[in-house]
């Protein structure tokens, strides 16, 4: 990939190994990367809760012909644009992250909870999750 051209256009990014850390404009970066180099599929989207700074999302791209991986990572607080226009596999990933972490994706029409029931309170995988749904009282009662 042409790194000097990339760093000239998007000047607030850092390169560590095969991982790029950016601050904003996710869709622009992905479209630039796909134009330069044919990455075929988005293997997964990994989300980590970092406390006060927000949630860090990592996109794992892969190219079948050349067998190369690339990681693009960005930290968000509440909302971010969705990549379902480019990769259709991201629909399932984004629903899971909305369910377990509470991040909204703009542009995804089917945004709903994936794993927990529709009226569950709270987002379970956050670090400050308190188990305060009423159904959890069943665990302590005798049968």
């Amino acid at each position: 990939m042409n790194w000097s051209e990339f760093e000239r256009i998007f000047n607030d990014c850092e390169l560590v190994g095969n991982k790029i850390v950016i601050q904003s404009n996710l869709l622009g970066v992905i479209e630039f990367v796909l134009k330069e180099y044919p990455y075929d599929m988005l293997k997964e989207i990994i989300a980590t809760d970092k406390g006060d700074e927000g949630v860090e999302l990592t996109y794992h791209l892969y190219s079948v012909d050349d067998e190369e991986d690339l990681f693009i990572s960005i930290t968000v607080k509440d909302e971010i644009e969705s990549v379902t226009g480019i990769f259709k596999s991201a629909e399932a990933d984004e629903n899971e992250i909305y369910d377990l972490f509470g991040i909204k994706f703009i542009g995804n029409e089917n945004l709903k909870r994936l794993y927990m029931p529709e009226d569950w309170e709270g987002h379970p995988l956050r670090k400050d999750y308190k188990e305060d749904d009423k159904r959890l009282e069943w665990n302590d009662k005798q049968s």
């Binding site: 959890l136 069943w138 009662k141 049968s143």
Partner: peptide, 10 residues
């Protein structure tokens, strides 16, 4: 776990 029922006899 946060989502498993502890025994179906409840």
């Amino acid at each position: 776990s946060y989502s498993v029922i502890r025994g179906i006899d409840k």
